[in-house]
Simulated assay, not measured.
Amino acid sequence: MRLYRGLARVFPRSFSAKLMSVVFVGLHVPLLVLLLWMAFTGHYRRDTMWTVVGVVLAATLVGTAMAMMALYRLMAPLRQAADALEAYYDEQRLPHLPDLGHDEIGRLLRSINRNLHGVDAGLRDLRRSVLLDPLTQALNRRGCEQALAESARQAQSRRQPLSLFVVDLDNLKPINDAHGHLVGDQVLVRLVESARQWLQPGDWIGRWGGDEFVLAVHAGHEVACERLRRWLQTMEGSVGEEIPLKASAGGAGYRPGEDLRELYRRADAAMYRAKYAGGARLCCDGD
């Protein structure tokens, strides 16, 4: 990179000029050596022909080796660019290529930096849109499944408790019938926003489908159940312009190594017990 930076001071906007200068110097080294030798040793004599041939041959070999070495070093930015592209393709590792000026290579490296960062940002937005519910911006079903797998992995590796809750609204249909579906949509959005006010870092809420939501809480099961119970009471106690919400919820604590479908089944069964018991309450697995 030092050779490149040095030539960049002389030819700041042309990589071709850099290459040509290296080739020019490499090809003319033999001639320069021959001229210097003849100048210091006097006129040319026949009996010194083989000496001249040897000197010219040696100088040519040296000049060729120097030119090849310089070209190899001059190509270092291109090798870095190729490595950066491969690293992003294989590991999604963003490049941090150096800024080498305004010639062809400098523009190429800046373009790779800028374009890969733009592509990566676009992919992150796409992943988020694929995993989020467009109405509530909570996780959608696919997002819930991925988040639950990650939560279970962390709970098992760190030996931390994890509780899963299934929440189903009891009065969304009456709200839609009385106030319209637009108000019903606003109710769903408000439910997610209110949940995020008490969820801790690492906890999450997702819309499983319709008016059914799933929450994961990284806390002891009794503590998690108490937090969810207070949340249900807060929603049911809404006054003023906010329409009170009634929801049935079921919870289950994660057992290390448990199949996640079984964990959801236990929480879902507890939610149906709450609904069959009259709704607007929380039932936990094992109660």
Rank of each mutant, 00 (worst) to 15 (best):
S14N: 09
S129C: 05
L61T: 13
L282P: 04
D99F: 09
D83F: 10
R73K: 11
G210P: 03
C144Y: 02
L94D: 11
W37T: 13
C283G: 00
D103G: 15
F213D: 01
R13H: 11
L139T: 04
D133L: 08
A219N: 07
G143I: 04
N113I: 08
R281N: 01
L94M: 09
N140M: 02
G143S: 10
G206S: 07
R153M: 05
A247M: 11
G209A: 10
E193A: 14
R110I: 05
L148Y: 06
G63R: 02
R45G: 04
R110S: 15
V189N: 01
D185T: 06
G26N: 08
V183C: 05
D125I: 04
G237Y: 06
V217R: 02
L123M: 10
T136C: 04
P244L: 10
V223A: 15
G202K: 04
V55F: 03
Q160W: 06
D177S: 11
M75V: 05
P174F: 10
R266S: 02
V10Q: 10
A149I: 01
L228I: 11
C283H: 02
R13Q: 13
K173S: 12
G54I: 02
L7P: 03
L3A: 08
A270Y: 02
Y89M: 01
A224R: 00
P161G: 07
P201F: 01
C225F: 08
T234K: 12
T41H: 10
H221A: 12
I243A: 04
D285M: 00
R13T: 13
L215A: 09
Q92Y: 07
Y272E: 09
R255I: 12
L100G: 04
R128W: 01
L169F: 11
S248W: 02
R153P: 00
V217C: 15
A224D: 02
D285Y: 07
W50S: 11
C225D: 02
D168V: 01
M68K: 06
V214C: 06
G253F: 03
R5C: 06
A58P: 03
